[in-house]
Simulated scan of single mutants.
Amino acid sequence: MELQILVPNRPKPSVPVQNPAPKEDCRIFKAKGACPFGDKCRYKHVKALPSNNSRQDATKNQ
């Protein structure tokens, strides 16, 4: 006797399913400014804004 497993045939979607928008920032991109995964990375690539810390530190030291 042979056991057969029946699997239902599901139609393939006509439009490719897109992943939801990433919620977390990419740690590699944040640290290095580039990510080896590029557009296929599952995380957000957010460029850091220049900070004004150097100007604030200079006024604190005076």
Rank of each mutant, 00 (worst) to 15 (best):
A21M: 13
D25G: 01
P8C: 09
K12D: 11
Y43R: 02
N53T: 00
P13A: 01
V15K: 11
K32I: 09
N53K: 02
D25N: 07
K47M: 13
K60S: 01
V46Q: 00
D39Y: 10
E24F: 09
E2P: 04
E24M: 07
A48C: 05
K12M: 10
P8T: 08
K23M: 10
A58L: 15
P13N: 03
N53E: 08
D57V: 08
R42A: 13
Q18M: 04
F29E: 06
P22W: 02
G38R: 03
N61I: 02
F29M: 10
E24V: 08
S51D: 13
K47N: 15
N52Y: 04
K44W: 07
K60V: 03
A21K: 13
Q56H: 08
L6R: 08
P13Q: 02
P11F: 03
E24S: 09
V46E: 03
L49C: 13
M1F: 09
Y43N: 06
I28W: 06
F29D: 01
K40V: 04
L49Y: 12
R27A: 14
V17P: 01
G38K: 00
N61H: 04
A58M: 13
Y43V: 03
P11M: 01
L49P: 11
A58N: 09
R10L: 14
Q4D: 02
V15I: 12
K32P: 09
P36V: 02
L3R: 12
P13H: 00
G38L: 02
P36M: 06
S14L: 07
P22G: 03
C26K: 03
N19V: 10
V17Q: 04
K32C: 12
R10V: 15
M1D: 04
L49D: 15
P50M: 04
K12N: 14
M1C: 07
F29S: 06
H45C: 00
K60Y: 06
R10Y: 12
I28T: 10
Q56E: 13
V46P: 01
P22K: 02
L3K: 09
R55S: 15
N9H: 15
S54A: 14
G38P: 00
D25E: 07
F29L: 09
K40H: 05
L49R: 15
S14A: 09
A34V: 11
A48K: 03
K60M: 02
V7D: 12
I5D: 04
R27C: 10
Q62P: 04
R27K: 11
Q18D: 01
A34F: 14
Q62G: 08
D57L: 12
V17I: 04
N19M: 09
P13E: 00
T59V: 12
N19K: 10
K32L: 14
G38C: 01
